[in-house]
Amino acid sequence: MSDNVFVGAGQWLTDSAHWSGTDGVPARLLEHLGYTVLTVVIAAAIALPLGLWIGHTGRLRGLAVALTGSLRALPTLGLLTLVVLWVGIGLTGPILALVVLSVPPLLAGAYAGLESVDRHTIDAARGLGFTEWQVLTRVEIPLALPLIVGGFRSAVLQVVSTATVAAYIGLGGLGTYLIEGVQIRDYPMTLAGSLVVVVLALVLDAGFALAQRSAARS
């Protein structure tokens, strides 16, 4: 049975009919990436300024640690269901749920990155007459960049892997293959969709790993 599912998944992936049209893999992949980019941009607009401020000033660090820990513990499907019941069916619910889940790694990456900067380096910059803004932008952020990029890496992978829940309310993306496959018992399609998500996550992870290494060397 399991062998047949893997063979069927391979046949599904090599069928040209599944690589064209509005329901084809490229179209669903673009939808999935669109949700991911939108989510991470919104989450970064919230988390980065707050994380940089916490890391630079040291204020509210305990609250930030507790917040990131509690948000990471939230169940994705339960959060999505709650948000959809609150705001109604549409794009807002899934995006809001995914934003909540992607804020913690971005926030943690920002404040942890700044906290990792050597205090002597910061004191030296202040001794040279740097303003606090110059200390932040010319010293702390460049030195903290590997951890900040690591926060983006974690957030993107989190969103890519959980954006499949958007298909529960008919918003498309790669999750369509998983959910429709289970509903109609087309398990090769479910497995094929899962493999596409895994490959996408691995490719993005490799890209961010290279970006982290580049940031660490600069």
Rank of each mutant, 00 (worst) to 15 (best):
V198A: 13
I148S: 03
V197S: 01
A64K: 10
L38N: 04
G34D: 03
Y168M: 14
G90S: 14
T137V: 06
P188Q: 02
V5W: 12
L200M: 14
Y111G: 01
S20R: 11
A163M: 02
A216P: 09
A17R: 11
S154M: 14
L13R: 02
Y168C: 13
A110D: 10
W12Y: 14
S116C: 05
G151V: 06
L114V: 15
A163Q: 00
Y187R: 05
H56T: 09
Y168V: 15
T131L: 03
A163P: 02
G129H: 08
A206M: 09
T176R: 10
A215C: 10
L80R: 06
A166F: 04
G21W: 03
A97Q: 00
G173K: 00
T68F: 08
V87T: 14
L74D: 04
L106P: 07
L71S: 04
L202G: 10
L204T: 07
L98R: 08
V203Q: 10
G170K: 05
V7M: 03
I148G: 03
V196E: 03
F152P: 11
T176S: 05
L13G: 12
E180Y: 12
A44N: 08
L200C: 08
V135H: 00
I46S: 04
S214T: 14
A124T: 13
V165S: 05
P104V: 12
N4Q: 15
A167K: 02
A47Y: 09
R213Y: 12
H32V: 02
V117N: 05
V40C: 05
A125Q: 05
V196M: 09
G193S: 00
G151D: 09
G93D: 01
G90V: 06
D118S: 07
P75I: 01
Y35A: 15
Q183R: 15
R217S: 15
R119W: 11
G24S: 06
I54M: 02
L143Q: 15
D123N: 12
L71R: 09
S194I: 05
V199M: 11
T57K: 08
T14V: 09
I122K: 02
L13H: 04
A47Q: 13
G150E: 02
M189N: 03
T76W: 05
V160S: 04
S218C: 13
Q134V: 04
D15Q: 10
A47G: 07
A66V: 10
A125D: 13
T131N: 00
A144K: 01
F208C: 11
V65D: 15
A112F: 09
N4E: 15
A47V: 15
R138Q: 12
L13N: 02
G62W: 12
P146R: 01
L13S: 11
A201W: 03
A27T: 06
A209E: 14
H18K: 01
S2N: 13
I169Y: 02
P26L: 10
A215W: 06
R72D: 12
G93S: 09
T39A: 00
T22R: 06
L114G: 10
Q11F: 09
P26C: 06
L71D: 05
V87F: 11
V41P: 06
G62D: 12
A144G: 01
A73P: 08
L171Y: 05
